[in-house]
Design a protein around this nucleic acid. Structure first.
Lengths: 191, 191
DNA sequence: GGATATCTACCGACTAGTTGGTCGGTCGTC
DNA sequence: GACGACCGACCAACTAGTCGGTAGATATCC
């Protein structure tokens, strides 16, 4: 069972990565926030890469859980996509985790330890696969329309969402700007 | 007149930032590549932030020059947009500077020195303004069509381009993937 | 049931290496 | 002789990571 300290280290690391990326957070930062010795962090996560991998692995799981719940409880494809896009709008609005950790790490890709890079790639693949599934269903039952195939539509949607996150971040966390970019992208699929 | 060393420091810093971001490049890295003492870099650029600002300022100028040239020599709006989108496709394909420096720094925004952050914001504003101009012209003379206004169309295009860069980077520099995401976004405007 | 061994969580103190940055000084040129 | 370009040596602060050790819980053996 995951101890309290273990979880708090993960939480803090995640928050720090979201705001600074992989290269600009340190064990000392986490140590100060959690109120625990640096050595303790090494006890739970031997190296920095291990810590980052654990953070992304948990993030991937949470994403999969969220997507799975949506697949189970929301039958309409258009609402599923709106749920994905809207989730991030809310995150930016609440300023809690206003950026997709994987998108941030994607930018740092060339300087990432290989294990971390592999997790980032895995997240992208899973995310695209999930959304491709949603869109594919929607195209077949007529809830969605697109001139592109499902996978390409998914990739375009994700790219737009990530690009909109960047724009919102540059604008100081502007959720309206994010929405004004992503809503048309959504509407193009939902018709 | 900009000395040779001065320019080579800028070039190297730019390349390093493109591949690693602001936080993960050091004076020592540049020193090793350029073959000049660390103190020399400080002589030309007193602080790290000064260096980064100089890199982005030069990048902004180059962008403005490129956009200005396009405005002067390419009368058709659709070809102007294709020029912008295609420029990055070529960069990814050649693997020379396969990422927009400002998009990368945008991700690191919260951990950037204020002067650097200001430059990033300025680049985004200029880029949007230029593309908005192109699109506005195109909509008026019928070369382009869109259900959105010019500025929003520009923001959507830029977001898609930046998101596609991320996707291509995760996929190990896949220019085809970049193109497969950006081409439909372009076609939506050029009809 | 009491002594003993083991395990996990945790810590202070340390290390070797790196970070951005400073200093005094040397060289060649105008 | 002033000036810009440049350098080696240095600095304090920070980096990830190591080490030996402690406190407390849990299990094991007699």
């Amino acid at each position: 069972m995951a101890s309290d300290t273990y979880t708090r280290i993960l939480d803090t690391a995640q928050a720090l990565i979201v705001s600074r990326g992989y290269n600009a957070f340190s064990y000392a930062d986490i140590s100060a926030v959690v109120g625990v010795g640096k050595a303790t962090i090494h006890h739970h996560f031997p190296g920095k890469a291990d810590l980052a991998v654990a953070v992304i692995a948990r993030y991937r799981q949470a994403t999969e859980d969220g997507m799975g719940a949506m697949a189970a409880h929301e039958p309409r494809a258009d609402r599923r996509l709106a749920g994905y896009v809207g989730f991030w709008e809310q995150c930016i609005r609440d300023n809690n985790a206003p950026f997709c950790i994987a998108a941030l790490l994607a930018a740092e890709m060339p300087s990432l330890p290989p294990e971390v890079a592999a997790q980032v790639k895995a997240h992208f693949d899973e995310l695209i696969a999930r959304l491709t599934g949603f869109i594919d269903e929607g195209l077949k039952n007529g809830e969605l329309t697109s001139t592109e195939d499902a996978e390409r539509s998914a990739r375009i949607l994700v790219a737009t969402v990530h690009g909109a996150m960047l724009a919102a971040r540059v604008a100081g966390g502007d959720a309206e700007l994010y929405a004004s970019i992503t809503q048309p992208a959504l509407k193009r699929l939902t018709g």
